[in-house]
Simulated scan of single mutants.
Amino acid sequence: MSAHTIDPEFEDIAFTPRQEAVLEHALALLVGGGEKALTTAGLARTANCSKESLYKWFGDRDGLLAAVVAYQANKVHFPPESGATADAETFRTHLVAFATELLAVLFGETSLALNRLSIGQSNRDDNRLGRLLLVRGKHMISARARSLLEAGRHRGLIKFNDAEEAYQVLYGLAVRDVHIRLLLGDTPSEAERDLEAQARVAVDRFYRLFGA
């Protein structure tokens, strides 16, 4: 993105390599010390940049926190719908790639730490992190995934009546109970570490239900 305050809706945001490096430092501060540890002064010192740059890129502290969550969510990539639905094989490949990246983000230590931190604050009225994880994380990913599924339905590659229901089925088939187990401190099995294999199985089962 260009050096200006981030659009509040965070739609299709693109960070520069320098901004991504700064946000990785911000994630480390947030995971290591909670919201209180994520300050502009602390981030500027850790990331070796000026506070002026941080304000120019992300706005105030709330904007910085929102950018951190959006950056993490953006690690799940989505292809242009026209390219994703070029043919049946291409579309299926993109669904597997989406499910693989989704699992990589959800099962990664950073996302697990952010979710644990948010859950620990869930009884607070000012749980900004929890709201951001829902709006800028989960909801943003699900909205774009539904658009991808709708594009596939439009091309006659899959069939369903409700895009949200179809996405929830795909999500459940991919994630299963592994995410909650990891949040509770369980260690994934060797098979569960093969994220692409899990994604392929999930998509295969999804097609049994929604394949055209």
Results as ranks from 00 to 15, higher is better:
residue 1 M to V: 09
residue 2 S to E: 14
residue 2 S to C: 05
residue 8 P to S: 09
residue 9 E to K: 03
residue 13 I to A: 13
residue 14 A to L: 06
residue 19 Q to N: 00
residue 20 E to Y: 00
residue 21 A to I: 00
residue 23 L to Y: 00
residue 24 E to M: 11
residue 28 A to D: 13
residue 34 G to E: 04
residue 38 L to E: 09
residue 38 L to D: 07
residue 40 T to E: 14
residue 42 G to I: 06
residue 43 L to Q: 02
residue 43 L to W: 01
residue 45 R to S: 10
residue 45 R to N: 10
residue 46 T to V: 10
residue 49 C to K: 07
residue 51 K to W: 01
residue 53 S to F: 14
residue 53 S to W: 07
residue 55 Y to M: 08
residue 55 Y to E: 07
residue 57 W to A: 12
residue 58 F to H: 01
residue 61 R to A: 09
residue 64 L to A: 02
residue 64 L to K: 00
residue 67 A to M: 11
residue 67 A to Q: 07
residue 68 V to T: 13
residue 69 V to L: 03
residue 70 A to T: 08
residue 70 A to Q: 05
residue 73 A to K: 09
residue 75 K to I: 07
residue 78 F to A: 05
residue 83 G to E: 14
residue 85 T to L: 03
residue 86 A to P: 02
residue 88 A to K: 04
residue 89 E to A: 13
residue 91 F to L: 10
residue 93 T to Q: 14
residue 94 H to L: 04
residue 95 L to M: 13
residue 97 A to T: 00
residue 97 A to R: 02
residue 99 A to M: 10
residue 100 T to E: 06
residue 100 T to V: 01
residue 100 T to A: 03
residue 104 A to Y: 10
residue 108 G to H: 11
residue 110 T to K: 14
residue 112 L to S: 01
residue 116 R to K: 12
residue 117 L to P: 02
residue 117 L to F: 00
residue 118 S to F: 07
residue 120 G to F: 05
residue 122 S to H: 11
residue 123 N to T: 08
residue 124 R to K: 11
residue 124 R to I: 02
residue 126 D to E: 14
residue 127 N to K: 12
residue 128 R to T: 14
residue 134 L to I: 07
residue 138 K to Y: 00
residue 139 H to L: 03
residue 139 H to C: 01
residue 139 H to R: 06
residue 141 I to D: 12
residue 142 S to A: 15
residue 142 S to G: 11
residue 143 A to I: 05
residue 144 R to N: 13
residue 146 R to A: 05
residue 147 S to I: 02
residue 152 G to T: 12
residue 153 R to T: 02
residue 154 H to C: 00
residue 155 R to E: 15
residue 155 R to V: 08
residue 155 R to T: 09
residue 156 G to K: 13
residue 158 I to R: 00
residue 163 A to S: 15
residue 163 A to F: 06
residue 163 A to G: 05
residue 164 E to G: 07
residue 164 E to L: 03
residue 167 Y to T: 06
residue 168 Q to T: 11
residue 173 L to M: 04
residue 174 A to R: 08
residue 175 V to Q: 03
residue 177 D to F: 06
residue 178 V to Y: 05
residue 178 V to F: 05
residue 179 H to S: 14
residue 180 I to F: 12
residue 180 I to T: 15
residue 184 L to K: 13
residue 189 S to M: 03
residue 191 A to Q: 14
residue 194 D to A: 15
residue 194 D to G: 05
residue 196 E to L: 00
residue 199 A to S: 04
residue 199 A to R: 04
residue 200 R to V: 05
residue 203 V to F: 04
residue 206 F to K: 01
residue 208 R to W: 11
residue 209 L to D: 04
residue 210 F to L: 10
residue 211 G to N: 03
